[in-house]
Simulated scan of single mutants.
Amino acid sequence: MKILLRIAAIAAITILLALSSLYAASEWRLARHYDVPLTPLRIAPATALVAEGERRAHIFGCTGCHHEAGNVLFKAPGVGRLVAPNLTRMAPLYSDAELARLVRHGVKRNGTSAIAMPAAAFSGLSDEDLVSIIAWLRTRPRMADAEPAQTAWGPLGWFAVATDKVPFSAPRAREVAPPVDRPRATPSQQGAYLVQSICSDCHKLDEANDNGWGMRTPPLRMMGQAYSLADFRALMRTGKAMGDREVGTMSSVARGDFSHMTDNEIEAIHAYLNSTDKSGSIAAVSAK
């Protein structure tokens, strides 16, 4: 009996030490600081940009993730929950330059990394787009949190954080400098920019992509080339794929957010995916 009790005690201590180690490793990763300097935005807010802000917040996915006042992105027993915060409450705490760093580099005001912010896609987001969205956010009244709970992790979540299975944004952000000058972009460059900024967080250009959340997406170029412009426009406006099919997340995102794209933006994406340019680069659109 004493031997069994001793074995049980050793097992309990081992488990406790393992959980403590996981917790410590996860807390270290969550508290890690990233030294990314603030860069002032070069475009001043204007009425026209503010008016465009809500539309651009849709097409770049801000409203799709954060909703009106926060949104639970992921929740599972033992793992935890990931919450996209209420922007009407969080944006006033940030300067414009701090918001730009958060979006482009995934670095929060306190220097730690955001989680699931698609900074890799947004690294080259233009000043015009950023200023427009930020200016619109600053006109919105503060709203009570739709989701009162905050991001939190359970034991399985600690393991995921400690072993880099959670999508920290700052380490995944790309170095793009200077930002894209969207107003000066040619239609081809505009298409490359929109593909990078809007599509690349879920899709890879020429191969299937495992997004790590149980979702696998097809190669974007192959999909775009399978659609006529009319069918592609219908997909982006209504969420209906060829054959009047529903296609999961794409259908809901298209109806909720991509439907706010202009005809020119949809045509630019389709033209780029059907071009002979295989680079997928947006470097040529960078501001001088």
Rank of each mutant, 00 (worst) to 15 (best):
M1S: 11
I3L: 14
L5Q: 05
L5F: 04
R6T: 13
I10P: 00
A11G: 08
A11T: 12
L16R: 01
L16M: 12
L16G: 12
L19I: 08
S20K: 02
S21D: 08
L22V: 01
L22D: 04
A24N: 08
A25T: 03
A25V: 02
A25M: 11
S26E: 10
E27K: 13
E27S: 15
V36H: 13
P37W: 11
T39A: 14
P40G: 13
L41P: 02
P45M: 11
A48R: 13
V50A: 09
R55E: 02
A57Y: 08
I59G: 02
C62V: 14
T63K: 15
T63Q: 14
G64D: 13
G64I: 01
C65F: 11
E68R: 06
A69S: 15
G70D: 07
R81H: 10
R81G: 09
L82E: 08
V83E: 12
N86L: 02
L87W: 04
T88N: 02
T88M: 04
L93A: 11
Y94Q: 07
S95E: 11
D96G: 10
D96P: 10
A97D: 15
E98P: 09
E98I: 09
E98D: 13
V103L: 14
R104K: 15
H105C: 04
H105A: 09
R109V: 15
R109A: 15
I115F: 14
A119V: 10
A121E: 11
A121R: 07
L125H: 10
E128K: 12
D129T: 07
L130W: 08
I133V: 15
I134F: 14
L137Q: 13
T139C: 05
T139K: 06
M143L: 15
A144N: 11
A144R: 13
Q150C: 02
W158L: 02
F159A: 13
F159E: 01
V161D: 09
T163G: 01
T163W: 07
P167V: 05
P167L: 06
A170C: 09
P171W: 09
V176L: 12
V176A: 06
P178M: 04
P178G: 03
P179A: 06
V180N: 03
T186C: 09
Q190G: 03
A192I: 02
L194E: 10
V195W: 11
Q196E: 13
Q196P: 00
Q196G: 00
K204Q: 11
D210G: 06
N211K: 10
G214V: 07
M215K: 12
T217R: 05
P219D: 10
L220M: 12
L220N: 03
M222F: 01
M223K: 06
S228K: 05
L229C: 00
A234M: 10
T238D: 11
G239P: 01
G239Q: 00
A241M: 09
E246V: 03
E246D: 07
G248E: 00
T249R: 02
R255Y: 00
G256R: 10
D257R: 03
S259T: 13
S259Y: 11
M261D: 05
E265S: 08
E265K: 08
E267A: 14
A268W: 04
S275W: 08
S275D: 12
D277W: 03
S279T: 15
S281A: 10
S281N: 02
I282W: 06
I282S: 10
I282N: 05
K288V: 00
